[in-house]
């Protein structure tokens, strides 16, 4: 059962990602990316990370991708003709991508993996993550809130009309 769900989720994640970067219509591209993100959320549930899965849907699918969609609709990019990349660039990119994949895959799977550890009780539950976040990772957590503040100020400044 879980293997079947995993295979389907893997297939949709991959199809979604490929279609997201290749589709000519940016709105459809965003939808495929959402498909990819939701399939990854399914994976996270299978990997006993339900909290991250929920965040994935709320944050990624619900906020970030809606922002993308909003910008695309605001700019009305349907009319814009996209100039093609040159043939040479395409060929080189695909070759480079293939080599990159093989290198990365070799590096990721080549070494001897440590044996799978026993999962502690309540692994991946909201409580366990919250405790770690507010004890061990307190300083990164506070730093990230400063980062978000900076990003917010930056976004407001950049999109303000009429300078000054």
């Amino acid at each position: 059962m879980e293997t079947l769900v995993g295979i389907v989720a893997a297939a949709t994640a991959l199809i979604g990602a490929i279609a997201a970067v290749t589709h000519r219509n940016a709105v459809v591209g965003v939808l495929f990316l959402v498909l990819n993100l939701v399939s990854l959320a399914v994976f996270y549930v299978l990997l006993s990370a339900p909290f991250i899965a929920a965040l994935q849907v709320i944050l990624y699918a619900g906020a970030i991708m809606v922002l993308f969609l909003f910008i695309i609709m605001l700019l009305d990019l349907r009319r814009e003709e996209e100039r093609e990349s040159g043939l040479l660039q395409k060929v080189l990119s695909v070759i480079g991508g293939g080599v990159f994949f093989l290198l990365l895959w070799g590096a990721a799977t080549g070494g001897a993996a440590p044996a799978a550890a026993e999962l502690p009780e309540h692994f991946g539950s909201v409580e366990s993550i919250a405790v770690a976040l507010f004890t061990t990772y307190l300083i990164p957590f506070e730093t990230i809130s400063v980062l978000l503040l900076v990003a917010m100020v930056g976004a407001v400044l950049l999109t303000r009309k009429g300078g000054r």
Binding site: P50, A54, G62, V66, V126
Partner: peptide, 16 residues
């Protein structure tokens, strides 16, 4: 376990 987060997730998918 994630209970109420599921509701938030579904309502944010509904925006689409």
């Amino acid at each position: 376990n994630i209970g109420i987060l599921f509701f938030l997730a579904m309502s944010s998918v509904g925006v689409y």
